[in-house]
Amino acid sequence: MSLEAIRYHRGSLHILDQLLLPQQSHYEAVTSVCQAWEAIRAMKVRGAPAIAIVGCLSLAVELHAGAGGPGLEALVTFVQNSLNYLVTARPTAVNMARAAQEMSEVATQEAGLEGATEGAVRERLICWAEHMLEKDIRDNRSIGDHGAQHLLERVAPGGGQVTVLTHCNTGSLATAGYGTALGVIRSLQALGRLKHVFCTETRPYNQGARLTAYELVYEKIPATLITDSMVAAAMAHKEVGAVIVGADRVVANGDTANKVGTYQLAIVARHHGIPFYVAAPVSSCDLSLKTGQDIVIEERPGQELTSICGTRIAAPGIGVWNPAFDVTPHELITGGIITERGVFSPKELQTALTSTTS
C-alpha cells in the first residue's frame, strides 16, 4: 500500500506534514483555504499535483461548512477569491492555477443555470474537487505504465532489468497516490524489471533524502541515496540506464520547469547518452507559454541554504540565491515526456495534447 500524503472525506481534510518526515509521521487537519495556503507555502505539502488537490479540497471543506454566500453571486465571488489566493502560494507549478481556472468556471456555469440554488452549486463544486483526488490516482497509474513500457523498449528491448536515477520527490507524497516519475519506477518494480534506483538528496530542502528515500524504503524498492554532486559519477560508473524526473510545468515547446538541479542532470545524461525522461500529468502542461523563458521561477528564503534543521551551516554575512526550480531545455529531454495519454517527444507534445482534447 502506498503512502498517503492526503486523507480526505466529505468535510474533513488532513495532510501529512512533510517537514517532519522521516522522523515523524503526523497528519495535520486543514480546515480553511488560508490554512491550506500556509501549508503549501511552508512546504508541509508539496508536489505540483498535491498542491492543486489540497488547495481545491480545502475550499471544498469550507464550502461544506457553509462558507460563502448568502446568495449565488456572493458564493461565486467567494470561490473565485479563494482560488486566486491559493494560486499565489507557489506560482511556478501550473496545476493549482489550472485547477483554479477550471473550478471557477464550474462555479460560474452552475450559478448561471436556470433554477440554480446555492446548495446545488456548493454540492457541484465539492464533487468537482473530490473528483480531482480520484482522477489523479488513475492518471498516475497510467503515467507509470506508459513510462515503464516506453523505457523498457528503449533501454532493455531484449529483456533484463534496468537501473534508473531520479531527482527530488515525485511519488505518493507529491500526488494523491502512486506518483509520476516514482510511479514509473513502481511500475518497473511491479514488472520485475527494476534493478536499482539512485535518488539524489535534492538540496537545499532534501526532498530526495527525506521523502523519496522514505518512500523507496517503505515500498522495499532497491535504492541508493547520493548527493546532487554525485550524479555524473553515478552515470559514469553505476550502469544507469535512464533518468526519470517530474515536472511542475511543461510549456508548449517542451521546456520543463522542475526542482532546481534537474537542468544539470539533463546535461550530464546527454553527455553519457542516457535517455532523460520527464513524467508529468497533462494538468502540468501549460501550452499557453511558448518557451521556458516565460515561466516564473519561485525564489525561496535564503535560510533554506544557510541552515539545516535550525542550525546554521554557512558563514554569517554570505549572500544567497535560492531558486526553487530551473528550466530544462526541450532538446535535453531525450527519452520523452510521459503523460497519462502516452509518451511524446517534446516536439510532439503540443500537437498530441491539442488533438486528444479537441
Rank of each mutant, 00 (worst) to 15 (best):
E4K: 14
E4W: 01
I6P: 12
H14G: 00
Q18F: 10
L21T: 05
P22Q: 09
P22R: 06
H26D: 08
S32N: 12
V33T: 15
C34L: 15
R41V: 06
A42R: 15
K44A: 09
V45K: 02
G47M: 04
A52F: 00
I53S: 04
L57R: 08
A60D: 14
L63E: 05
G68F: 08
L72K: 00
V76E: 06
Q80K: 09
N81M: 08
A89Y: 11
P91S: 07
A93Y: 05
R98A: 08
A100C: 13
E102K: 11
E105V: 09
A107V: 05
E114V: 03
W128C: 13
E130D: 14
H131W: 11
H131F: 12
I137P: 00
I137D: 11
I143G: 02
G144S: 05
D145V: 10
L151T: 07
T163H: 01
N169C: 01
S172W: 08
L173H: 07
Y178H: 13
G179N: 09
L182Q: 11
I185L: 08
A190S: 15
G192R: 10
R193H: 04
K195D: 14
T202K: 01
P204H: 04
T212F: 10
A213E: 04
L216M: 12
V217F: 05
E219M: 12
K220A: 13
D228G: 04
A236Y: 00
H237F: 02
E239F: 02
V240D: 02
G241K: 10
V243H: 12
V245R: 13
G246P: 14
A247I: 08
A247K: 07
A247P: 13
G254K: 09
D255W: 00
N258H: 12
I267A: 11
H272F: 15
P275I: 11
F276Q: 10
A279R: 01
A280M: 01
P281G: 07
S283M: 03
S283E: 07
D286V: 03
L287W: 01
S288P: 13
I295M: 06
V296E: 13
Q303I: 01
E304N: 01
S307N: 08
I318R: 15
G319M: 12
N322R: 07
F325D: 02
D326K: 10
V327R: 08
T328S: 10
E331V: 03
L332K: 00
L332R: 00
L332Y: 14
I337F: 12
V343Y: 02
Q350T: 14
S358P: 09
